Amino acid sequence: MKIYLHPLCLVFVTSRLLPARFDGYSFGPVVLVRPDSSAALLVHEQTHVRQFWRYLGLNGLLYEFSPNWRLRLELEAYRAQLAVAGPAAAQGMALSLASNYGLDITQEEAYRLLTT
């Protein structure tokens, strides 16, 4: 376990507690990442923690019940991740954004949203 102050969160490196389809997952101020996760993924998850603090915990409800909010929150997190990972990672992130979040967008739309 590691404690970060900016944003305030607890990060656990684990393979056991994560849903199989994710390499990282955050809920509130707690972040789970796999042992082989990149620094860019940690930045993505920490962005979700910032959202948690910014929206006083309501981001989870917004995320769950509003595809528009889900897109907004994931775009912010993926853009932060992309800033660390570099432009070569954009297509893979666009594919993930288009296919893993029930957003009804194409990979091309996701790429455009990430890179503009």
Rank of each mutant, 00 (worst) to 15 (best):
M1Q: 00
K2N: 11
I3Y: 15
I3Q: 15
P7W: 02
P7M: 06
C9K: 00
C9G: 00
V11K: 09
V13N: 06
S15Q: 11
S15T: 15
R16D: 04
L17Y: 07
P19E: 09
A20R: 10
R21C: 02
D23T: 13
D23N: 15
S26G: 02
S26V: 04
F27P: 05
F27V: 13
F27M: 15
G28W: 01
G28L: 05
P29M: 03
V31R: 05
V31M: 09
R34G: 07
P35D: 11
P35N: 14
D36E: 11
A39L: 09
A39T: 09
A40T: 05
A40E: 02
A40H: 02
L41P: 04
L42I: 05
H44M: 01
Q46N: 08
T47N: 03
R50V: 06
R50C: 05
R50H: 09
Q51G: 10
Y55H: 15
G57A: 13
L58C: 12
L58S: 13
L61W: 15
L61Q: 05
E64W: 13
F65Q: 04
N68F: 13
R70I: 06
R70Y: 07
L71C: 03
L71D: 04
E76M: 07
A77N: 04
Y78I: 10
A80F: 01
L82I: 01
G86M: 14
A88C: 00
L95T: 12
S96Y: 10
L97Q: 04
Y101P: 07
G102I: 02
G102P: 05
L103Y: 03
D104Y: 06
I105Q: 04
T106A: 07
T106Y: 09
T106F: 03
E109V: 00
E109R: 03
A110L: 10
R112V: 10
T116G: 14
